[in-house]
Design a protein around this nucleic acid. Structure first.
Length: 469
DNA sequence: GTAGGGTTAG
């Protein structure tokens, strides 16, 4: 049987466990010393094999059977193998299995057992239980190691309690345990999230000079996010003049990490590019974008929409269009309806309704079918330019293409038609609304009632209006 | 000698 189990062979399935449990294990247990030793390694490697094949639950079942049938008293190593596997998977039931295993352990849990359980619990945010276990570790006089502290510090940092984290660092120091890069990264990240960039930078310096630890991708990523966040926050604070130095800092970090062979990930690239466009640092934005495209990646749709919206809102038409051209008309991004919607809205905002019309009319040639959102952008755009005939034509085309207007569009049109004294059109709209089971918003309703009261709308419409509430 | 360790942000 032992010979049969080579690394290349797949492990037996659950049904075959019976044979191993009832025949192989008792055989090994009852043999001489040599076989007893191989029994330990047999079970241990069997468990490792199951875990390696992503069959952690089976490993758990197997270990349980060994215990329940009193076939073999598992060692701490065996328990840890299974507990680690169960905790790695941030799944509630698996975590419960791990805890159950721990509670019923017949051997002494060690620091590995505790670290796995605590980190698993922190991942599913069961802080209280994690704390309780950590306390148990100290009570049982098991020495915590760097990893124990890292789990603790990371958890505390995620909650933003940096004072507490500093205290834990002190405790760590008292026990003669040196922080590693993961310890520092947790702290640096937490400061960056809070926008405390000076503190983050001084931690980086401290880490380099006192512990000879070099910043890694995670360190740089935290710094980049921190500077971009900092920059974006200024927008929320409605500062009339944004401080571009923040983006200078971000770009310096970016160059430094590039020199060391690190690259930001997709999320960070997107964020940086958006901040650069927002800071009107177009050269930097394009440099970053080229980098992303060279990696075979592209912008997130949401980021792209935000950038286009921002540029067009600032009337930076040329920049928006050069970005659109760079990504290519046939690209997936430029064929996305939410992108096109933003673009159309922006073009109208910039007074470029001919351009918007051209873009819209080119859609079918590109094999793209306008959505209700696209139509409503066109309709709103035309209305705002006072091009009522174009708006009405667009509305009809929308219906002909079986693209049904939303309640929003209907309400919007009713208001615009009222403002433009197109009373016959209002009447038609109201009938359509009733047929398609749409309703009137409060604001639309009061405008309609006012028009009826003023005599501009037929009193006979009152009944219909009532039904649309 | 045997195990784990570094998350996540659109």
């Amino acid at each position: 049987m032992l010979e049969k189990m080579t690394r290349e062979d797949p492990l037996p399935c659950v049904d075959d466990f019976t044979h191993i449990l009832e025949v192989v294990i008792p055989l090994l247990v009852n043999q001489n010393v040599f076989y007893k030793t191989s029994c330990v390694s047999y079970i241990a490697s069997f468990l490792v094999g199951l875990v390696f094949e992503d069959r952690s639950h089976e490993a758990y079942m197997f270990l349980n059977k060994l215990i329940k049938h009193k076939l073999y008293q598992p060692t701490t190593l065996m328990y840890n193998t299974v507990i680690i596997a169960l905790c790695d998977n941030p799944d509630k039931t698996m975590m419960d299995d791990a805890l159950k295993l721990y509670q019923e352990m017949v051997s002494q849990p060690d620091v590995v057992t505790y670290n796995s359980l605590v980190s698993g619990l922190c991942k599913i945010r069961r802080w209280a239980k994690a704390y309780f276990l950590l306390k148990g570790l100290l009570d049982k006089d098991i020495s915590p190691d760097v990893e124990t502290f890292n789990i603790l510090i990371n958890t505390i940092c995620c909650q933003g309690r940096l004072q507490v984290a500093a205290h834990v660092i002190y405790m760590m120091h008292q026990r003669g345990i040196s922080p590693n890069i993961a310890t520092y990264n947790s702290l640096i990240d937490a400061h960056c999230v809070k926008g405390e960039m000076d503190k983050a930078r001084s931690l980086v310096n401290h880490m380099v000079s006192n512990h000879h630890l070099a910043p890694d991708t995670a360190t740089y990523t935290s710094l980049l996010n921190g500077y971009c966040n900092d920059y974006d926050k200024m927008d929320e604070a409605n500062d009339y003049c944004k401080d571009d130095n923040k983006m200078d800092d971000a770009m310096l970090i970016y160059h430094e990490m590039n020199e060391k062979g690190f690259k930001p990930n997709c999320v960070t690239y997107n964020r940086m590019i958006q901040s650069c466009f927002s800071a009107e640092r177009f050269e930097d934005a394009h440099k970053l974008l080229d980098d992303v495209l060279a990696q075979g990646q592209t912008l997130y749709t949401n980021t792209y929409c935000d950038i286009l919206h921002d540029l067009l809102e600032k009337q930076l038409l040329a920049e928006a269009l050069s970005l659109y051209d760079l990504l290519g008309e046939d690209s997936k991004l430029n064929s996305d309806m939410s992108v096109l919607e933003v673009l159309l809205d922006g073009l109208f905002d910039c007074g470029e309704h001919d351009f918007a019309r051209e873009l819209f009319e080119g859609l079918s040639a590109r094999g793209l079918k306008p959505t209700p959102g696209i139509y409503s952008s066109m309709i709103c755009g035309f209305c705002e330019e006072g091009l009522m005939n174009d708006a009405k034509r667009m509305f009809l085309e929308m219906e002909e293409n079986h693209c049904w207007p939303t309640t929003d569009t209907y309400n919007y049109l009713v208001l615009v038609y009222l403002q433009n004294k197109c009373y016959d059109d209002v009447k038609v709209l109201l009938y359509k609304m009733k047929r398609q089971k749409h309703y009137l918003y409060k604001s639309t309703l009061s405008m309609l009632r006012a028009s009826v009261a003023a005599g501009s709308l037929d009193v006979t419409l009152s009944n219909l209006i009532k039904k649309l509430v």
